[in-house]
Computed example of a mutant assay.
Amino acid sequence: MSLLSIRHDLPADVLRRPATRLFEVLDGPTLIHLPGDRPQPLFVSVLMHGNEDTGWRVIRNVLEEYGERLPRALSIFIGNVRAARYGKRRLERQPDYNRIWAADGDTPEHDMVRGVLASMRERQVFASIDIHNNTGINPHYACVNRLDPRYLELARRFSRMVIYFTRPSGVQSLAFARLCPAVTLECGQPGDEIGIQLATRLVRQMLEADSLQGDPALIDDIDLYHTVAVTKVPNDISISFSGEVADVRFIRGIEQLNFEEIPAGTRLADVTTPSMPLNVMDEDGRDIGAAYFEINDGRLLTRQALMPSMLTVNERIVRQDCLCYLMERYDPSRGEKPLPETPLWNDAAPRS
């Protein structure tokens, strides 16, 4: 039995419910296709993580504004309804809904994403917007997986700050980047009203747009960064963010360093372990921690200048996902990297 439900209408009273109460009218992950004046649909995914409710608030705003007459068809994927009930990123035995879009597996979740992709490919999706929140303190920014001007236009309509990445390979935007212009929106922490307004504006613009032209000159109006590595803490390393005794005691307020260019020699933590307590993996799966961090006299220091993003002091999120990503400023003249080969898309090529 498939985990995915597909509908062609809105369940009664669904727009009156916050994310924590969607389980009352939805059995689980649900793909809703709504008609519009332009038949090529905009795809919007929300609640990929159950504790990130901005996307659902955006959908409520948009549908309450337009009513039954949408200027473009709209397909809405409502993801982890069960985790949203409890305000959690995911439940203990669930996979991360934003890490399974590249995997070839036989779980209900893999069947679910195959169903979503097949449905949207058949409908010749116009553009994809995946809406998220951060747990740490971050600015509003957009992420793309291709440097095609149409993708950058979609991102710039949300924020001047844009991150380009091709790993991790299992995220929703990478799967949709093979079908259409795709973007991930990072809208600040849940409840951030500015993030909600910016995302609502972008969805409204894409519903009303005739096309995405992709002005190449737009690149001059973008602060472009590239994710070079993801930083994780091994499960056998204890951590603290408030001064408690642990293998790694991070400095207080470390999340304030997000999107700051940190010089070499910056102290990030006090450590009791003689060896490197972090795993820092680049896009090719190589551990490059020694290039970025060092231990000196019981302190974890930066070895070179770096810029982190998505630093969080929420230990649960650190364990379920990562401590942070490391970024560099990116010159688009370097070109884009090939999208990773994935079982779901080995026979698929990006549409031009």
Rank of each mutant, 00 (worst) to 15 (best):
A102W: 05
G115W: 09
Q94D: 14
R123Q: 10
R89N: 05
V81K: 03
A103H: 13
G67R: 03
L63Q: 12
H110M: 03
Q94L: 08
K88D: 05
R90I: 08
D106L: 11
R93E: 15
T54Y: 04
I59R: 04
T54M: 07
R72Y: 15
A73N: 13
D96P: 00
Y97N: 12
I76W: 06
G105T: 02
R60V: 03
R121H: 01
S119Q: 13
F77R: 01
I76M: 08
A118H: 12
D104R: 11
K88H: 09
R99G: 08
G87I: 03
V58Q: 06
M120V: 02
G67D: 05
G55W: 09
S119L: 12
N98E: 02
A102I: 03
N98H: 01
S75A: 10
R89P: 06
V81T: 06
V116L: 02
R93S: 15
G55V: 10
H110Q: 06
R85H: 14
R93G: 14
A84S: 11
L117V: 08
Y66H: 14
E92Y: 15
V113C: 07
V58M: 06
E109H: 09
Y66A: 12
R99F: 06
D96Q: 00
A84C: 08
D106A: 10
R114Y: 01
A118N: 11
G87V: 02
T107S: 11
G87L: 02
G115R: 08
D106R: 13
D106E: 12
